[in-house]
Amino acid sequence: MAQLKGWREIPIGGLILEAGNAVEYKTGGWRAFRPVFGQAQCIHCFQCWLFCPDSSIMVDAENEKMVGFDLEHCKGCGICASVCPVNAKVIRQAGEALKRDDPRLCIRMIEEGKAE
């Protein structure tokens, strides 16, 4: 962790005077469930990228591909898995409620600490 500053060295009132610095705040440690991406199923629709509240979906813009998750910032909310149309299709075809880590899903939510 960076050296913490004294009260004379920081802006008053908790002001943050630089923009775009949320990237420095690593929130990945908050996660209880980790999203895992099934490359084979993905249709690269970018619904997860659109809905992710933390800009944690990494994309290859040039080739228009979803490439994975920024796990330093992803808090594991699971919105990506909820909005994934492939997940929806898999669940519908299965005809039953699937566990969040079912291997058939495109975006699976795996409990932190557990293997994929």
Binding site: G14, I16, E18
Partner: peptide, 19 residues
């Protein structure tokens, strides 16, 4: 651009009170 009123935990809240 700047931020007013962000979260301020045990690492800096106390310094802001000292200010």
């Amino acid at each position: 651009p700047k931020t007013y009123g962000p979260l301020d935990f045990y690492d800096y809240y106390y310094e802001h009170k000292r200010q």
